[in-house]
């Protein structure tokens, strides 16, 4: 197998846990979308073009209410503002990508895509376009397909709460947080973000607790003594 094909299939293999973890949410999104007044086609369009689960869910809640379009779009942006940070961080890893490859790669920059890319870079593997797309395409294809399946068959899930489906996302994100625990400043950052997001949730309100809480954690990292800045310049 050529190195490029091998890289691609390593990406596919790395994507499997994420495909499995995202499946219930992809279908739940489709089901809730129809429940909130979107057509099946609109639900699929949203999964295919926005491709960001949490923000799609937030958007859905607002489609259901009679809220001005620009407020819905602004809320989606607020939930997805964290991708500005992912983008800036990932930009350091994909220097070898061609310009047009970067334009494509950033479209697929979801939470797990970012986490997996950082994890691969941490293990000192080269981050290639082949691996990146091997990771991204199964997640994307199935996400869109699941949205469609969920929209068509969503009425069959009568009680998502009893199946625990509504709570899988926090459990999954908790696992991702723990995956970064070997990084410097991990514990103070997590504590600051956790407290900051809870405080913002009760004062400013959702969805701004995401951006504000993250800002608290990042600020702590900036204010900590930069002892490791030289030491882990290569792999941090």
């Amino acid at each position: 197998m050529s190195p490029t094909r091998s890289e691609f299939f390593q990406g596919v293999r790395d994507s499997l846990p994420i495909v499995a973890a995202a499946a219930p949410f992809g279908m739940l999104f489709g089901a809730l979308a129809v429940d909130n007044g979107l057509s099946v086609g609109e639900a699929v369009l949203m999964s295919a073009t926005v491709f960001a689960g949490a923000s799609q869910m937030v958007g859905l809640e607002m489609f259901g209410a009679k809220i001005a379009p620009w407020i819905i779009i602004l809320s989606v942006f607020a939930v997805n503002f964290r991708h500005v940070l992912y983008s800036a961080a990932l930009g350091r890893r994909i220097g070898r990508f061609a310009g047009w490859q970067k334009l494509i790669a950033f479209f697929f920059l979801t939470d797990p895509q970012y986490a997996a890319s950082e994890a691969r870079a941490d293990k000192k593997f080269p981050l290639t376009m082949a691996w990146y797309m091997g990771m991204a395409l199964p997640v994307y294809t199935l996400w869109v397909l699941e949205g469609w399946i969920g929209a068509v068959f969503g009425s069959l899930i009568t009680d998502p709460g009893a199946l625990g489906i509504d709570f899988l996302l926090p459990i999954y994100f908790l696992g991702l947080v723990l995956g970064f625990r070997t990084r410097s400043n991990w514990l103070p950052v997590v504590i600051a973000s956790g407290l900051g997001s809870i405080l913002a949730f009760y004062t400013v309100g959702s969805p701004w607790h995401v951006s504000l809480g993250a800002l608290a954690g990042v600020l702590v990292a900036v204010l900590m003594p930069p002892r490791s800045a030289d030491a882990d310049e290569v792999g941090a």
Partner: peptide, 9 residues
């Protein structure tokens, strides 16, 4: 470097 843990938390 703090971004992923901060946001996901």
């Amino acid at each position: 470097n703090a971004v992923p843990a901060a946001v996901l938390t």
